[in-house]
Design a binder for these strands. Structure first.
Length: 507
RNA sequence: GUGGAUGUAGCUCAAUUGGUUAGAGCACUCGGUUGUGGUCCGAGCGGCUGCCGGUUCAAAUCCGGUCAUCCACCCCA
C-alpha cells in the first residue's frame, strides 16, 4: 500500500465527472469503512467516559502516556503472536515512502512496553504504571459495537509480579465501569506460565485428537495453530466437546496455582462480583497467568466484552527488554462503554453550557458589547451572536443555548450607561447600571447555583444510576458477607465528584 | 473472509404495487413583530430516489451488477 492518491478518496466516479464542476459533490466524500465522526452532540458521552477513565488513572497512580499511532510492524508482530487473527489479517499495514514497514496500532500494550524499554523506565521504582487513551485500528468487518478505528483506555503496570497487582487492576476496570453506572461481571481465568501452558496444550490436543470428526473446520486448523482457542468456539459440535475437556486449572504448576489462588482471595476480600471462567482465552499470545474480561451483565456469552486484560510477564523480555520483567494490565473499549451510556438515555449536561447571553443592537452597542464580553468571559459562562444584527435572531439563539439570563445592550442603554437584564425563564426585564453588571449578575446566578454544574449528571435517575452502591449479583455465599467497608473507602470520593456541587471545573 | 437485510430531503418516514411535476413531519432560512426567544400562522430552501447497466411507451418501484450501511458468523474491545 502506498500513498499515491492526493485526491480525497471518492467512490465510483470517473475522472471526467471530477473535472466538470458540479453543484453538489459532497455526498461523494464519505468516511472510510469502519470509521466514523464523533459529532459535537455526542461528545458529552465521550467526555463523561474519558473523565471516568482519567479519574481511575489518578486514583491509582497511573501516569498518562501517549504513544504514536504508527509503529513498526515488529512491535506488534512479536508480542501479539503471528498466528493471531489480529496480526495475521487485521492490521492496517503498509510500506511508507522510505520503505519502512509501518502499521496503525491495533492495541496499546505493545506500544507501552516498547516505550518502557526505549526510555529506560526500568531505572524507576517498579512497578511503573501507565495509563493511555486513544484510538486503535483493526481491519475487521464492522458490526454493532465494532469499528475499524476504536477507542481504548488502558492501564499497564510493569515490573511487579505480586498477585495483589492483578487483583487491583481487575478492581480498577470494574470501578471504571461501575463509576459510569455500567453493571459489569468480571470473568477470570489463569492460563498458567509458558511451562504449564505447554503441558495443558498437549493435554488439550490429545483430547481433541480423539474427537477430530466433531470439530468444525476452523477448530481443526486451530488444533495445530492455537489449541487454546478451541475453548471459546461457539459451534455446537465443539461446545459439546467442552463438557469433558481437561481444565487448565488442573495443569497449573505450584507457583501459578498459588498466584491465582491469591488473586481470587483478594477479589473475594474486595467483594467483587466475579465468575471463574475456565473458557476465556485471550486472543493475544503474550498473556500468561491471570487473564480477565469485563462482560456487561446483560451479555451472558461475552460476545461484546467491554474490556479485558491480564498478565504478560514475558513480553518485556520478548521485546528486547530486561529478562524477568513481569507486567499486568487491561484495557476498556470506550466505544462500547459510550454505547451503553447512550442506551440508557442519560440526561448528561452539555459540557459547554453557558449561563449568560450578551445581545447588542446598533453599531455603538456592538462595539461596547464586544468589549464587555472580554471583561466578563473569565468570570461567567457566556454566549453571543455579535455577527447578527436583529434582536429577535439573537434572542432566538439565546433561547436555544438555554442561558438563564440575556443582557441586552442597545442605543438607549449605551447613552444611559445601563444595560437590560432579561430573565429567560419568565421574560422579566430590569434596567441595571452598566457598572454594576458583575455584582448584579453574580447575585442573580446564585439562585441557580443549586442545580448548576457541568457535573455531567442532572437527573435523579442518573444520580441513582451512578451512585456508588455496588450492584447486586447472584454469586451465592460471597454476596452474603456483604462487607463493603474495605471497598467503599476508595470509591467514596467519586460520589462527590458526581454530585451537583462539582461545579464547572470538570472540563 | 462468509451469510442475511436494507439504501428516497440534514433526520424519521410516505409514494394507492410500473403511470402526471417523488410527498409529509421534524430541522433550517425568511416573514407576520422597524428593540424581544419558547407557542402560533404564512412562505421559502432542501432530491442525479446510493451508483452503473438492462427490461419497458413509461422505473423510486422489475432484473443484473456494484458500492455502502446495519445485523449475524469468524475474531475481538
Amino acid at each position: 500500500m502506498e500513498f499515491i492518491h492526493c485526491m480525497p478518496r471518492t467512490k465510483n466516479i470517473d475522472k471526467e465527472s471530477l473535472d466538470k464542476p458540479r453543484k453538489k459533490r459532497s455526498r461523494e466524500f464519505i468516511t472510510v469503512t469502519g470509521m466514523r465522526d464523533i459529532l459535537p452532540q455526542d461528545q458529552k458521552y465521550w467526555q463523561l467516559a474519558e473523565n471516568a477513565a482519567v479519574k481511575i488513572a489518578n486514583d491509582y497512580g497511573y501516569g498518562k502516556i501517549d504513544t504514536p499511532v504508527l509503529e513498526y510492524v515488529d512491535v506488534f508482530a512479536k508480542g501479539i503472536g503471528k498466528q493471531t487473527d489480529i496480526v495475521e489479517k487485521e492490521m492496517f499495514a503498509f510500506v511508507d515512502q522510505g520503505g519502512d514497514n509501518l502499521v496503525l496500532r491495533p492495541e496499546g500494550t505493545a506500544s507501552v512496553v516498547r516505550a518502557f524499554i526505549q526510555h529506560g523506565f526500568l531505572n524507576q521504582p517498579q512497578p511503573v504504571r501507565f495509563f493511555y487513551y486513544g484510538s486503535m485500528f483493526r481491519h475487521e468487518k464492522p458490526q454493532s459495537g465494532r469499528f475499524r478505528q476504536f477507542y481504548q483506555a488502558g492501564y499497564e503496570a510493569i515490573g511487579e509480579d505480586g498477585p495483589a497487582l492483578d487483583a487491583q487492576l481487575i478492581l480498577m476496570g470494574y470501578n471504571l465501569l461501575n463509576d459510569l453506572g455500567i453493571e459489569a461481571v468480571i470473568q477470570v481465568n489463569s492460563i498458567g506460565c509458558s511451562v504449564c501452558r505447554e503441558e495443558y496444550k498437549k493435554a488439550l490436543v490429545k483430547y481433541y485428537r480423539q474427537h477430530v470428526k466433531k470439530l468444525c473446520e476452523n477448530c481443526e486448523s486451530r488444533l495445530a495453530k492455537n489449541p487454546l482457542r478451541l475453548l471459546d468456539c461457539k459451534e455446537p459440535g465443539c461446545q459439546e466437546l467442552k463438557a469433558d475437556v481437561p481444565q487448565i486449572l488442573d495443569y497449573l504448576d505450584d507457583d501459578c496455582k498459588k498466584h491465582f489462588m491469591k488473586v481470587l482471595e483478594y477479589l473475594d476480600e474486595l467483594n467483587l462480583p466475579y465468575a471463574l471462567n475456565p473458557w476465556i482465552v485471550r486472543g493475544l499470545d503474550y498473556y500468561n497467568r491471570t487473564i480477565f474480561e469485563y462482560w456487561s451483565a446483560d451479555d451472558l456469552e461475552g460476545k461484546n466484552a467491554l474490556g479485558g486484560g491480564g498478565r504478560y510477564d514475558g513480553l518485556v523480555e520478548l521485546m528486547g527488554g530486561r529478562e524477568n520483567t513481569p507486567a499486568c494490565g487491561f484495557s476498556i473499549g470506550m466505544d462500547r462503554v459510550v454505547a451503553k451510556l447512550r442506551d440508557r438515555n442519560l440526561d448528561v449536561a452539555e459540557p459547554y453550557q453557558p449561563d449568560v447571553f450578551i445581545a447588542q443592537l446598533g453599531e455603538s452597542a456592538k462595539k461596547k458589547a464586544l468589549v464587555l464580553y472580554e471583561a466578563l468571559r473569565h468570570k461567567f459562562k457566556l454566549s453571543q451572536a455579535f455577527y447578527k444584527d436583529g434582536l429577535k435572531a439573537q434572542l432566538e439563539q439565546a433561547n436555544r443555548s438555554k442561558v438563564k439570563y440575556c443582557l441586552i445592550l442597545g442605543q438607549k442603554e449605551v447613552s444611559d450607561g445601563t444595560i437590560m437584564f432579561r430573565d429567560m425563564n419568565g421574560g422579566v426585564q430590569e434596567i441595571v447600571d452598566f457598572n454594576k453588571i458583575e455584582t448584579e449578575l453574580t447575585k442573580r446566578l446564585e439562585k441557580y447555583s443549586g442545580d448548576e454544574g457541568v457535573a455531567v449528571i442532572d437527573t435523579e435517575e442518573t444520580k441513582a444510576a451512578l451512585s456508588h452502591k455496588r450492584f447486586k449479583h447472584d454469586y451465592g455465599e460471597r454476596e452474603a458477607e456483604n462487607d463493603l467497608n474495605t471497598i467503599d473507602e476508595p470509591a467514596e470520593p467519586a460520589i462527590d465528584d458526581a454530585a451537583p456541587d462539582a461545579g464547572g471545573e470538570d472540563y
